[in-house]
């Protein structure tokens, strides 16, 4: 459900408005009116009823990261460090190691993104030569009361699924 928006004209020029007290009492009256009305029935509020009502996230929205896998479930990432090199927030931390599944030679042994430091610029996605990292999970809310929990690890990112179909995602890239 899209939020309702109402544009109000800018005011405050007339002499009556410049005597602030009158306007203050008018304002208090409006507040009181809204308060009483919403107490009775809140369906006309001009804000989104979050979190009961969730927003619509378009496919090109940069949400939480995920690491993609080949069809057999093995990671696409080859630990080339392009994302880490290009990350302006310096919040990607990769350790590389030998890959023995025969797909290629190299893969990450650990892959950490500190989401508390990430600025959601999407450079990591653009830099990746293997299409191994995307921000298409559609997850935009991610909070914690603890800094350490804001670091997400490889297993978690590998287990996340994309929030859109491939066509939606590709079209989203074009729209962007």
């Amino acid at each position: 459900m899209a939020a309702k928006v109402k544009q109000l004209p800018s005011r405050g020029g007339t002499p009556a408005e410049k005597v602030y007290l009158i306007e203050i009492f008018k304002g208090m009256g409006i507040t009181l009116r809204h308060f009483l009305r919403n107490l009775w029935d809140n369906s006309n509020l001009y804000v989104r009823h979050y979190p009961e009502v969730q927003p619509n996230i378009p496919a090109h929205w940069r949400g939480r990261h995920r690491l993609l896998t080949h069809s057999d479930g093995t990671p696409k990432c080859v630990a080339c460090f392009m994302c880490q090199t290009n990350c302006p927030a310096n919040c990607i931390m990769i350790k590389a190691g030998e890959r023995t599944d025969g797909i290629t030679e190299k893969m990450p042994v650990s892959f950490t993104i500190d989401l508390a430091e990430c600025i959601y610029c999407g450079y990591c996605v653009e830099a990746c030569p293997e299409d191994a990292i995307r921000m298409d999970t559609g997850i935009y809310a991610f909070t914690s009361s603890n800094r350490e929990e804001m670091k997400i690890e490889m297993d978690e990112m590998l287990s996340l699924k994309g929030g859109y179909t491939e066509e939606e995602y590709q079209k989203g890239l074009e729209d962007e």
């Binding site: 080859v78 630990a79 080339c80 392009m82 290629t104 030679e105 190299k106 030569p129 293997e130």
Partner: peptide
Amino acid sequence: DCPICDQA
């Protein structure tokens, strides 16, 4: 192979 090549 540049992504996995140490010479890159």
